[in-house]
């Protein structure tokens, strides 16, 4: 699949899954590649639980309206999030979801992996965001995996760095 000029991405799940941070890291990777980025988020008052989502728009041109209108790719890490977006798969939106927390669904453009379980097996359930990003960017070339790795190297050090790079690798290998 060739790289498009513009990508609109939704990362949805529940508070505490690191979705806003995933949105920031995806955005930072695109900035490293010299592109314009707008990242927004929507969450409730709870720091854990409740529908939480991050939106990222990557474009070579100026990004005028800040919200995602025509998503190219969606990550759903909970049943609630998948329910909200599953119907878009029929319209051609690529949806990645977590089979640990959401019921499996059949259908074109719907791809399920046990992201949370794999992250947990790696030793840190909190790396589920990076693991998912790894899978998504391997399937759809929004940014280069190497740019994401660069962002991770900037943000983390020591054990956390190793673990997150490993999570990214595992995510890429899923595809």
């Amino acid at each position: 699949m060739g790289k498009k000029e513009r990508y609109e991405i939704i990362l949805a799940g529940s508070g505490g899954q690191g979705l806003v941070l995933a949105g920031i890291m995806l955005g930072e990777a695109a900035v490293l590649e010299g592109r314009n980025v707008v990242q927004t988020q929507s969450y409730g008052i709870a720091s854990r639980g409740g529908l939480s989502l991050a939106e990222v728009i990557i474009d070579r041109e100026e990004i005028i309206y800040q919200q995602v209108q025509e998503p190219d790719i969606i990550l759903a890490l909970t049943e609630e999030a998948l329910e909200k977006y599953a119907a878009l798969a029929e319209k051609g939106v690529r949806i990645f979801y977590d089979t640990t927390l959401a019921k499996p669904r059949a259908g074109e453009n719907l791809t399920g992996y046990p992201f949370t379980k794999i992250a947990s097996d790696l030793g840190n359930v909190a790396s589920v965001n990076i693991l998912s990003l790894g899978a998504m960017t391997a399937a759809v070339p929004m940014v280069k995996t190497e740019s994401l790795a660069g962002v991770i190297r900037k943000r983390f050090q020591g054990k956390a760095l190793e673990m997150n790079l490993e999570a990214l690798r595992k995510g890429v290998e899923l595809i």
């Binding site: 920031i24 955005g27 900035v31 314009n36 980025v37 707008v38 990242q39 927004t40 988020q41 990004i63 800040q66």
Partner: peptide, 9 residues
Amino acid sequence: EIVAHMRET
């Protein structure tokens, strides 16, 4: 809130 929490280049 949108503008304050939004991230841009």
